[in-house]
């Protein structure tokens, strides 16, 4: 079976410093992959480079979604092709309500002449907000403005649920969440699991993986995937830390691009 999403030899730099140093990853339809690793090993750079953040410059490699070259697309085209990145630090957009924003995003992928009806949109949004235990007033609040860290994360998951992407990247979605919020967010993710949708879960901690069970676990160091395994790898990392991986691979400094 061909991969839904594939990264080959990806290299990327930020402000002239190369962070990703030839990263390879294949994700099949319906699979959940977790990427773990200490701080400063390039995890968030991977997420931002795939999405096309203007500060990240891809210098080599390929990224394909459904056989299409993602790297040639603008950020918005990548999203419409089915990529979704739940961000670690979502932007606040004053004056633009959550509802207006999401309706624009949905209509952008439906195209002109095929816009979603307002009633249908409101019903959908209300239903998904209920699943995420979000106060209905967040519909009319300005996008992320004044939201707490946890509210922003829920709002990211809400967007994922409304936009129904093919490949979801969750960048540290668990940071800043208490255990109840974490369970709600995880339930939202699990509800979206399907044979046509894959997930790349980036996290420091095993904690999230107790609720979102990965099929594969990868360890990232020095801007590459250095070790891969099944869910048991995450458990061992949680129990023993990363030192044994470094020892096994002869790595002294696992970070990359640090001054």
């Amino acid at each position: 079976m061909s991969a839904l999403f594939e990264i080959r030899g990806l290299r990327a730099a930020v402000e002239g410093k190369e962070i990703l140093q030839g990263l390879n990853l294949r994700i099949g339809g319906g699979e959940v992959h977790a990427i773990m690793g200490p701080n400063g090993t390039g995890k968030s750079t991977l997420a931002s480079s795939i999405m096309g953040h203007p500060k990240y410059e891809v210098t080599a490699g390929e990224v394909e979604l459904d056989g299409r070259n993602v790297l040639e697309m603008e950020v918005d085209e990548r999203a419409r092709a089915g990529l979704f990145l739940a961000m670690q630090y979502p932007s606040e957009i004053p004056g633009v309500t959550n509802a207006d924003f999401l309706r624009s995003a949905i209509n952008a992928r439906r195209g002109e002449g095929n816009e979603i009806s307002l009633i249908r949109f409101i019903r959908q949004m209300e239903a998904k907000m209920k699943e995420l235990d979000m106060n209905p007033e967040f519909m009319h609040r300005y996008l992320n403005e004044g939201f707490s860290g946890g509210e922003k994360k829920r709002n990211e998951i809400l967007q994922m649920m409304m936009l129904e992407p093919k490949l979801v990247i969750l960048d540290e979605i668990d940071s800043g969440l208490d255990i109840d919020a974490l369970k709600i967010v995880a339930a939202g993710v699990n509800a979206m699991r399907s044979p046509e949708r894959s997930f790349l879960v980036i996290t420091h901690y095993q904690r999230l993986l107790n609720y979102v069970k990965p099929d594969y676990v990868h360890v990232m160091m020095q801007g590459r995937i250095v070790k891969s395994g099944g869910p048991e790898l995450a458990e061992r990392l949680e129990a023993e830390g990363y030192d044994w991986v470094k020892e096994e691979l002869g790595i002294v400094d696992e970070t990359v691009g640090q001054a």
């Binding site: 999405m51 096309g52 953040h53 203007p54 603008e74 950020v75 918005d76 990548r78 999203a79 419409r80 979704f84 990145l85 961000m87 979502p90 932007s91 606040e92 957009i93 924003f101 999401l102 624009s104 995003a105 952008a108 992928r109 967007q159 936009l163």
Partner: peptide, 15 residues
């Protein structure tokens, strides 16, 4: 703000 533009574009909204 370029970050704000990136964020909206990352949801499929054209620049």
């Amino acid at each position: 703000n370029a970050e704000q533009v990136y964020y909206l574009m990352s949801r499929g909204i054209a620049r």
